[in-house]
Design a protein around this nucleic acid. Sequence first.
DNA 1: CTAGGGTTAG
Length: 498
Amino acid sequence: MSRKFLSSLLRTSTTHSTTSQCHAQTILQSLLPNVILETDLLLAYSKLGLMGHARKLFDKMSQRNMHSWNIMIASYAHNSMFFDALTVFQGFKRCGSLPDRYTLPPLFKISVGIGEPYFGWMCHGLVIKLGYVEIVVVTNSVLEFYVKCGTMSQALSVFSHHNGSWDSVTWNLMISGFGKAGLYSDAIRCFREMLKHQSGTELDYMILPSILSACGKEGDLLKVKEVHGFIVRNFSFGVDVPIGNALIDNYGKCGCLKDSENVFKTMSCVNLVTLTTMISCFGMHGKGEESVFLFEKMIHEGFKPNAVTLTAILASCSHSGLVDQGKKIFNSMISDYGFEPTAEHYACMVDLFGRCGCLEEALQLLKRMKSSSVTGSMWGALLASCVMHKNVEIGEVAAYHLFQLEPNNTSNYVALCGIYQSRGMAHGFSTVRAKMRDLGLIKTPGCSWINTAGRAHKFYQGDLSHPLSDMICKILYEISNTQISTDDLGVGYLLHDL
DNA sequence: CTAGGGTTAG
C-alpha cells in the first residue's frame, strides 16, 4: 500500500479497526517518520475520541506542522479536556509559531471551559492583531465567547463592528445570546432585523429553537403560533427533535398544554430532552399524574433519566401534592440508578414535603445532611413552605440559617415577617423589621409594567398614581369577571415581512 | 484542523 493510498484511507476512516490497521501498515512498511501520514493518523484517532493514542503519536513526532498542532488543540477542546489543550497550546507558543484561523476558535472554547475570561480577551486581541477579523468563523467564535461570558454588550460590539460580513451562525448566536441573557424582546428584535437583512434567502432552521424560546419566555403565545405555522409551511421534513422540543416547551410556557401534547404526539423521533420537557409541562399545569405516568413509561422504554429529568419530575410531584410518588421516585433513583442527588434535588424534596404541610419531615431531611452541604435554596424552600402553612417554629429555624448564609437577601426577612404577621405576632414582626433597618435592607416593591405606543407605564403594588388609574381599575375588574380565550389576545405579527 | 439550536428551579 502506498503512502498516498494509506493517507486517503485514513482521511475517510470512521472505525478504530481501519485506523489501527493503517497505523500498523505505516510501521510495517517503514513509512514513518512522515509528517503527512502522522498527521492523518492524528486526525483519525482524534475523530474517534481516542485522545490517548493521538497524544502518544504526537509526542513521538520528530516534525510537526500547523495542521498537527491544530488537530491536537481542537480535539482536546472538543472533548472538554481543556487543560490538556492549553498545555499543547503553550508548547506550540514555545516553538515560536503564531496561531492561524484554525487555532483560534478552539482557544475561545478553552477559555470558557477553564472559566478564565482573561485568556479569551487576550485571544480576541490576537484575532485583531493577526488580522483574522474578516474570517467569519473566527469572528463568530469571538462572538460566542462573549455570549457564553454573559456579556451581551461586548457581543453586540463585536457584532456591529463587522457590519455586513455576518452569516446565519452570527444571527443565531446573537438571538440565542439575547435569549440566554433574559433579553427576550432584544432577541425578537434581532430576529426581525435578520429577516430584513436576508430577505429572499432561505431561513436557516437552526435558529428556530432560539426564536421560539424567546417568544415563549416572553409569554407571547401568538408569536409562538406564528413561528409554528411558519415551520409547518416551510420545512417539509416536519419538526426535527430540537424544534419539536422547543415547541412543546414554549406552548407549555404560554399555557397551551393541549398544543404541547399535540406536538409531542406527532413527533416521529424523541429524545430524553423531549420527555423531560413534556414532564415539566405537565408539572407546570398541575398534572402530576400525567408526569408520573410519562416518567414511568420512559423508564420502561429504556430511557435513562438525568439530573434535569429528576428535578422536573420531583417538582411536578411537589406541585400536585404527590408526596408518596415523589418520595418513591427519589429513593429509587438513588438505589436503582446509583444516582447522586444534587443540592437542587434536595431542595425539590424539601419543597415536596413542605408544600403539603409535612414541615417536620422536611426539616429532618436537612438535619440528617452534613450541615455544610445544606444550601440556601433548601432552607429557602423550607421557609417558603412555613409561610404557606404559617409555621413559626420551623420558619424561625429556616430563617435563622438563611440569615447566616445570605445576610443581604431581603426576601428572607420579608418571609419571616409574613409568618409573624399572619399569626398576629406583632412583636416578632417589629423585631425583624428593626433588624432590616439596622442592616440597611430595603424591600424592593413588586412592580409590573406595560409598553403601549412606545411608552412604558409602571405600576407598583397598591399604586394609584397613574393618571388613568380609575379607569384602569374599572376595566381590570370587568376583565377579571370575564372568561377570555387566549385567541383573543392582541395581534403582534412577527413574520409579516415574509 | 475552526463557529450556531432544545430540558429544571424558587
